[in-house]
Design a protein around this nucleic acid. Structure first.
Lengths: 230, 230
DNA sequence: AAAAGTCGGTATCCTAGGTTACAAAAAGAA
DNA sequence: TTCTTTTTGTAACCTAGGATACCGACTTTT
């Protein structure tokens, strides 16, 4: 089983930094359950009891969350090497909070949470690495959600845009940079409508604060950009 | 140092489930740095290099985040037993992302992250518990942020209210329940203005979907409440 | 019990931004 | 190139909900 799926395992953040040669031992110790699913089949269902952290070895799947009224909303697309269930694995929940459905024929590996934190008799060095990776995965997840909350909490589109552009400015260190997504995706990320986003960006251009052409943006007046956030 | 601060340590989620008698050994192994701060003094500053997970042993402090324009926003109030820096400790960041300021005279303990994940020579049983707690803390944090994102993403106040009420209904299992916060806090949580929240709640009452008096709410028509979310 | 402070409901007014629809530009395919 | 598709910008229209202000009901203080 290992050889045919080694690619997915190596790709995943959970096994990052663990030597390829060691993976045999690791898997032997973790003895994960592996299951196959056909296209459109449900991999897990909301409310099913949680059996372990999921890792997509093969194929593509979607995470679907049902709201209080039962409406289904697609949350994420999972590809080879992606994890799911990482937020509930070590929480007080014992059931899945969302469903996962196969978009193509899929192979999924389940890692029981006890196996991840338990120190096996030999107290293998990679075990520590596994725990470290798990902590890093959860931390990054929380930070990413935190960032999202920050954007969603802003009241005006202008504030969202200015913050986003200043973030990009800081990250790239240049006044001229490329936006990492198209208008639709950006509007989605900021939780506003695409035309409203365009309208506001054009206003900023008319005011001489920024200039842009498609994905290329140049910040002309950092100070004014900052005053939008005060 | 242990005896005078045992209360805070026992209170904290990080040391939950570790026997009081063992705490001496635990602290001996973790050998945390402890620092005192005076009222209004900065405990950590955004950009300072991260030295370890913070635990408030005594006093009260506030977490203050600066946005891209440098505007300072109060994020949380930390009390005895509260942790800070748990999201960055195991992330790729090596600097603090927010500042912490003492609101009263404070004592703070710093736990280096290596000490938390390292297995000491004696491979103490409580070490595993510590890791488990750390994973639980991060998971719950991520889940809580996830919930917040869900609420913030909804476009209409009505949808937010209906979701909130259905959540409460599910949690309590009763059609009549008490709201866990007052109108101001609820408006804040849902990221809307208080009068708008009142207005919409009254509309729902006028339509016969719910009834309420102050904090007491009764759901009259679950189905209609659910259709708001579709 | 009078005074002061808090909390929730209500009315008015107004604007930011959603919706829809279309046109222009860019990118890709044939 | 030319045709098609996708991505943007723009304009017109309209409403959800923010801001503000005020009132009445309760609470707490003195």
């Amino acid at each position: 089983m290992l050889n045919e799926h080694i690619e997915a395992i190596v790709k995943s953040t959970l096994f990052k930094g663990i030597d390829k040669k060691e993976l045999g031992l690791v898997m032997n110790c973790l003895c994960p359950r592996v299951s196959d699913y056909r296209k459109n089949e449900h991999i897990v269902l909301t409310g099913d009891s949680f059996i372990g952290l999921g890792l997509v070895l093969q194929g593509e799947a979607t995470v679907i969350k049902e709201n209080s009224a039962g409406k289904r909303i697609m949350m994420t697309i999972l590809k080879q090497g992606d994890l799911f269930g990482e937020m509930i694995a070590f929480s007080h929940y014992s059931d899945w909070l969302a469903s996962v459905q196969a978009q193509s024929d899929c192979t999924v590996m389940y890692l029981p949470k006890e196996k991840i934190i338990s120190q096996c008799e030999h107290s293998c060095p990679w075990h520590r690495k596994l725990i470290e990776n798990m902590l890093a995965i959860l931390s990054e997840k929380a930070l990413q959600l935190n960032k999202k909350v920050e954007y969603l909490t802003m009241k005006s589109i202008r504030e969202k845009i200015c913050t986003f552009l200043l973030d990009q400015y800081k990250m790239t260190g240049r006044a001229t940079f490329m936006l990492p997504m198209n208008r639709n995706e950006l509007a989605d990320f900021l939780n506003v409508s695409r035309p409203s986003l365009s309208r506001e960006m054009c206003k900023l251009r008319d005011e001489g604060v920024i200039d842009f052409h498609l994905a290329t943006v140049r910040i002309l007046d950092v100070k004014t950009l900052q005053t939008c956030l005060e």
